[in-house]
Design a protein around this nucleic acid. Sequence first.
DNA 1: AATGAATGAGATTTCATTCAT
DNA 2: TATGAATGAAATCTCATTCAT
Lengths: 230, 230, 230, 230
Amino acid sequence: MPRVSPAAKVRLEDTRRSQILAAAALIFARKGFDRATIADIAQAAGLAEGSIYNYFRSKDELLAHLPRQLAQPVLTTLLDRLPLPASAEEMEAFLLQLGTAFVARVRTHARLFKVFFSALPHLSPSARATYLQLVQIHAAARLERMLRDGVRAGYLRKDLNPAIAARVFPGMLFIFLMVQEVLVGRRMVPYEYDVIVPEVVQLFLYGSASRPRATRRPAGLRAQGRHRLT
Amino acid sequence: MPRVSPAAKVRLEDTRRSQILAAAALIFARKGFDRATIADIAQAAGLAEGSIYNYFRSKDELLAHLPRQLAQPVLTTLLDRLPLPASAEEMEAFLLQLGTAFVARVRTHARLFKVFFSALPHLSPSARATYLQLVQIHAAARLERMLRDGVRAGYLRKDLNPAIAARVFPGMLFIFLMVQEVLVGRRMVPYEYDVIVPEVVQLFLYGSASRPRATRRPAGLRAQGRHRLT
Amino acid sequence: MPRVSPAAKVRLEDTRRSQILAAAALIFARKGFDRATIADIAQAAGLAEGSIYNYFRSKDELLAHLPRQLAQPVLTTLLDRLPLPASAEEMEAFLLQLGTAFVARVRTHARLFKVFFSALPHLSPSARATYLQLVQIHAAARLERMLRDGVRAGYLRKDLNPAIAARVFPGMLFIFLMVQEVLVGRRMVPYEYDVIVPEVVQLFLYGSASRPRATRRPAGLRAQGRHRLT
Amino acid sequence: MPRVSPAAKVRLEDTRRSQILAAAALIFARKGFDRATIADIAQAAGLAEGSIYNYFRSKDELLAHLPRQLAQPVLTTLLDRLPLPASAEEMEAFLLQLGTAFVARVRTHARLFKVFFSALPHLSPSARATYLQLVQIHAAARLERMLRDGVRAGYLRKDLNPAIAARVFPGMLFIFLMVQEVLVGRRMVPYEYDVIVPEVVQLFLYGSASRPRATRRPAGLRAQGRHRLT
DNA sequence: AATGAATGAGATTTCATTCAT
DNA sequence: TATGAATGAAATCTCATTCAT
């Protein structure tokens, strides 16, 4: 006869698994997948070495379960709840939100990102896909459709290539995130993301060249954009 | 009495070192730093295991010497010989060349890039900097100055942030290069780089929003931009 | 106040022990002693791992208790109830029964035999003796006495060595049993034991060489010997 | 440039392999396959643990190479060089030699026999066959043919089953060898093999029952048979 | 008495590095 | 300088046994 109710048991087991995965993420990010030892992870999780194997069959399995378990809560699509833009101004507001969310997501998962890079050579294609979902670059398909709509509606350039542009937008932010959060750990530019994101949105929508007229940006929005976002 | 002249001896030794580093780059890129064995590298270099140690003190040292030795020939600055632009059109031409060169450089060093990622946790900050020089994102300082000039000259937006924009430009291309060449090996979009680069330049200069007037892009330049670049 | 009577308690405990030993015999025979895990055995017994230790102190103890407990019911002596033979013909009948019983016994305990072999290196001499009792080769002493009687009575060869002959007889069958039931699992010869046993008895009594006269074997007995015995 | 000639290198390597296999045989026989550790074997071979793996890929491979390497020299067929018998007397002489050789072989390989039993559960069928060749019970086919000839020639019983008899003969000796050399290490009977073998041959040829006439065994041969054989 | 998570000793195997030749 | 066998530290993983519940 079991001492604990089945439900409680499942809960306890899930707790342990999360606890171990959190420890694994920490150690993997710190030392890289190969240099991290099970002993390290066990110690970080407050368990004995052998206990890890009561919950995961192998070190590889830890790696494979990391994104699923740790990123689950935020894997809802970024763009789903936002209203579809019907003008350049609405698109600007939309991109500000999207960019801010994107930055937040990558920063949240910076640790998993480091794991991803260190483990790249042993990741199966499917595991790679799972890790890449962390940044949802794959979600660009949705942005692409919106851009296409914008072209059709006329507020975006007729000759815009929506497929390329939809990937460019996250890329404009990604370079800062990669260098600052993952690769080097030091800022490339002396600005916070609440300055970078609006600037990037401006660039994406209006470019860097002077415009014939100065009408294109309502002052209100810009000012708002310069305020704290993170 | 030495059989070989000292100079020839140095040359031979350099050859061997390059030969070993090339083998190391190949194996590191293929298996990741930790999974690569000295035996692998020795075999790829056509030497015995022990011989590696006549040229490099340790496996870590191989990693450290990789970018310096292998990337030396191409580490010339990207922008040095280009004439400074004096208008949006000249800037467009300049960015096309810069972007194309950037793409070529990253693709050339894709292998070292993979090594960089796989070895990230073991690299000292200075080693990281050395590897990042491969793509010269650090060189953005020069582009930043040019953008600042452009703003001053009036053909770029008064409210442009040159520091941010200078990093955004490579980032717009970097996302494609990262995913396609380094991380996944499959294309994100069904276009070659000679389509992507001009599109990115257009976005960077003119944005994605419609312009009040259709005068902004001389047809000649655009057509040229669509031609083969790689 | 105990809920169960002491006697019933003992009975229940014995049942559990048998149940565990049966599971152990199954698993040990299948995987060998060292490869069998307590988890395997517990599962086969329908218990939890820890429960095994309420009945046996260790894995080794399981091994030691196997033959005693599982073979008890059949450890009755093979030869006890047979009438003592007074002629070669009676001896032939006797050996047929003895051989048949021997074959049946070994086949019944084939599983324990496999355990015995797999665990040989860990068995103490006394444990080895216990396992060997399963086939009662040790019981040859009784057969030896009967052979000695036969020699004295004159129907067995004067120069027969009863000690050796008494061990040879089970050996003649044992080789088939070893190879077919224990070691290989495939038949050495295309005959059932009800052909092998009479043939072996003939060989033991009359040899393989031709006899000067053809009178040696009454037809009746031989025919009987060829009938089903198992 | 290699310091040692290729031939010398091969010789050295073979020596090492033999040295390791001999150590493995010793340890496996002593502790059984599963309890034997690579550390044990390395120590017995006078090497470091890791060195074993320069010659054998795994512990299993050691097990698989044991019989091939260690038994090779004696794997020539026992029966090949003996003249074919043409009478019961010649058959008796032949069986004496065969039995003596069989005993010698099994005793020589007693150690491998123990290994065989301890490793039985993990041996592949082909590995089992290789180990069983050590005792060449498979060679019974040849003896079977000889017995068939004897029946045809008339000096063996018309109703003899040669297939069964050919397996019985080694079995008569095998029981002593198994119990004395492999399983228990103590003698079943107070006789040396130079007494047991002739007795077994007598039993096999002439049985245990009295014969109508006393003519069957020429005294000369018997006396000879009782002399030292091992 | 029953449970099964936790433990940690111990086994196999890999591999960077050394060094005698 | 080149070699590659030898080394042994270190890592992963297994599993008998314990013990709180």
